[in-house]
Simulated assay, not measured.
Amino acid sequence: MPTDTPPPAPQPVFVLVRPQMGENIGAAARAMLNFGLSRMRMVEPRDGWPNPRAVATASGAAARVLDHAGVFATLPQAVADCAFVFATTARGRDLTKPVMTPERAMEHARALVAAGRRVAVIFGPERAGLENEDVARANAIISVPVNPEFPSLNLAQAVLLCAYEWGRQAADVAPEVLALAGTDLARAIEIEKLGDHFEERLEAAGFFFPPAKAEGMKLNLRNLWSRMPLTRADVQTLHGMLRQILRRRDG
């Protein structure tokens, strides 16, 4: 039957291994959906499934992540169809594996998914994290560079970090933008005229003294205006200030 719902975009599967609290499962679902992820699997959730506390914490749209979550008896079953598995852990392991930051791991995951391979990211239970037996089944480790004196992350926090890196690398978002609040940046001609106005008023006030330094002082002022991201509203305000000062002086 035709449907208006587009198929989900290729993405990794997030696997919660022996999660303990329903609230954390729900919070993990919210973190996933924040960044466009919807494929969750669970291994032996402590309090069984479905879990009303998880649904209540997920609240709203994120509940659909839980509606379609798969529940498995063992980790090997949960990742059986995956070609590459990442294990998230903060503790040192006596295992020889690549250790990646969340940023690098999700970059690698994107390349694998783009090549048609299914990727899983596994997260351990809240009390102690993944066991060595769990990590041994992973191809690589994700380790977050946290405070070594307090390395423990909440389950939902760990999910959020990985989901954020996945979503960030997909979005074409500038690292910094200027919110203009309904105005536009001033054009070069407007900045030029503002500089002229200031020079005129400052000249009349005797600011450019001694004469030998006047040109250098004017140059510094022009450089000042060019460094400032002035909006058209800013320019109009500064012109208005100069006019009002002149009116008060002449009044």
Rank of each mutant, 00 (worst) to 15 (best):
A233P: 01
P211W: 07
M217A: 14
R232D: 13
A233M: 02
L202S: 04
R201T: 07
D196F: 01
N223T: 02
R222H: 12
K193N: 13
G216H: 12
I245E: 05
I191E: 01
R247K: 11
L221H: 04
K218N: 09
P229W: 05
R232A: 14
D234G: 04
Q244E: 14
L219K: 15
P229K: 10
F209H: 15
V235R: 05
Q236V: 03
P229T: 10
F198C: 10
P210V: 11
W225S: 05
P211K: 13
L238F: 07
K193V: 03
F198G: 03
L224C: 10
Q244Y: 12
N220S: 14
K193I: 01
R248Y: 13
P211I: 01
F208P: 09
L238R: 01
G251F: 01
R201P: 00
I191F: 00
M228C: 10
L238H: 05
E203T: 14
E199T: 07
R201N: 06
M241W: 08
E215C: 01
D196Q: 12
F209S: 15
Q236E: 14
P229V: 13
F209M: 10
D250C: 04
P229E: 08
G206Y: 09
T237L: 15
M228R: 00
R222L: 09
P229S: 06
L224K: 04
W225R: 10
R222F: 09
F208R: 05
K193Q: 15
K218P: 07
H197R: 05
Q244I: 02
K213H: 08
K213M: 10
T231V: 06
G240T: 06
S226A: 14
G240Q: 08
P210Q: 11
A205P: 01
A214L: 09
E190S: 09
L202A: 14
E200F: 05
T231K: 07
Q244A: 13
L238T: 04
L238I: 13
R248D: 12
F207E: 06
E190P: 07
R222Q: 07
K218S: 04
L221Y: 10
L242G: 03
L224H: 07
A233V: 03
N223F: 00
F198T: 05
E203K: 02
T231I: 01
E192K: 12
F208H: 07
I191A: 02
A212W: 04
P211G: 03
L230K: 06
G251L: 07
D250N: 14
E203D: 11
A214M: 09
A214E: 07
L230D: 06
G206P: 11
S226Y: 05
L242Q: 09
T237M: 15
I191T: 08
P211V: 08
G195M: 01
R248G: 04
A214R: 14
F208L: 05
E215G: 12
D196R: 11
I245M: 15
G206T: 06
R249C: 03
P210R: 13
I245G: 04
A233H: 13
W225Y: 15
R247T: 08
P210N: 08
F209G: 08
L221M: 15
D250L: 12
K218W: 02
T237D: 00
L230R: 08
F208S: 04
R227T: 02
I191K: 09
E200T: 12
M217S: 08
M228W: 06
T237S: 09
R243Y: 03
L246N: 09
A204M: 09
L221W: 11
M228L: 15
G251W: 02
I191Q: 02
A233Q: 10
K213A: 14
K218A: 06
